[in-house]
């Protein structure tokens, strides 16, 4: 017992020093890695700026009233535009939204409120997460198998393929947002004698609305930019759509088709269409952000 001396200071380990020098190895390593990280961050943001610059210079040069109002040119024709593709994209995204939002919302209500811990809810949640990483072209293959083989290429088939891709995003975002509603509020509503349906319609949905809308907007933005699921469901058309059950043009397929053409006119139009498509996607993205920020 006597060999423990509590009065003297413990001897510092000889090799460790509290002193820090600016040029010792560990300081240099740290500095080097910090520089490397800055490099990665700067290099990583170059592609975005490059894409934006190309879109503005190449696409902006050709974006005029004609491009927005005319039909796509054939072969050697000059001029032309992609008005039918803008209409087609908007119509198909609208169809997809009309299908996926009600189903997604009701499914989210089940997952978040009605029966969060049931085996069905667990499975559905897991499937929804798996589907967010689902290759978008397989949504096209699936719709081809279900609809196109029987009814032919159409805007409806394109919309259904997009809806398959939107559904998991809507479900997960809506569930997350409904879970954020304070339990005090729902408890208070139940305490006043509300039925479950009343609590959901009058308390949970209005309170969770900003979050739900954010999810819907992000899903819409994603769907507007999709092309793989439309390739062999909506196909393409050089004319304005006259009904929903016929092949329909979309901006993304127009860009894909025109990008490989040997004509400068078509390639310029592909850039202009890209600019319009990116603007549509960005508008929905920014809307999503604004709505998301407005919630408390």
């Amino acid at each position: 017992m006597s060999d423990i001396d509590l009065t003297s200071r413990p001897q510092a380990l000889p090799r460790l020093s509290l002193e820090r020098r600016p040029f010792e190895l560990r300081a240099l390593t740290s500095g080097l890695l910090t520089g490397l990280t800055w490099g990665i961050a700067i290099l990583g943001s170059i592609p975005l700026f490059s894409v934006i610059i190309m879109l503005v210079t190449e696409g902006g040069a050709r974006l005029d009233i004609e491009a927005l109002t005319a039909l796509p040119p054939a072969g050697f024709e000059m001029g032309g535009g992609f008005a039918n593709a803008i209409v087609g994209t908007l119509v198909m995204v609208a169809i997809a939204t009309v299908i996926s939002v009600p189903i997604g919302l009701l499914a989210a209500i089940y997952l978040a409120i009605l029966d969060p811990y049931s085996p069905l809810a667990g499975t559905a949640r897991f499937v929804a997460k798996t589907l967010t990483g689902f290759p978008s072209i397989l949504a096209g293959v699936f719709t081809y198998a279900v609809l196109v083989i029987n009814f032919g290429y159409s805007a409806v088939a394109g919309g259904v393929a997009l809806a398959v891709l939107m559904l998991p995003t809507v479900v997960l975002a809506a569930e997350e947002s409904m879970k954020q509603v304070p339990q005090k509020m729902t408890d208070a509503a139940y305490g006043m004698g509300c039925t479950r349906a009343q609590v959901i319609w009058k308390v949970v949905l209005p309170t969770g609305l900003p979050g739900i809308l954010t999810g819907v907007m992000l899903a819409v933005a994603g769907a507007a930019g999709e092309s793989a699921p439309l390739l062999f469901t909506a196909l393409f058309s050089n004319y304005f759509m006259s009904e929903l059950m016929e092949p329909t043009a979309s901006l993304s397929i127009l860009i894909y088709n025109f990008s490989s053409m040997p004509f400068d006119n078509q390639i310029e139009l592909a850039w202009a269409a890209s600019l319009v498509l990116v603007l549509i996607v960005l508008v929905f993205n920014i809307l999503a952000r604004l709505i998301g920020q407005s919630k408390v």
């Binding site: 490059s50 190309m54 930019g225 993304s252 990008s259 960005l282």
Partner: peptide, 24 residues
Amino acid sequence: VFRTIVELLAAIPSVVYGLWGIYV
């Protein structure tokens, strides 16, 4: 701000990346 930039990178449609890839 930087995170927004990275998120925007994800928002750009695949075909636009394809077009950018071909010409840049």
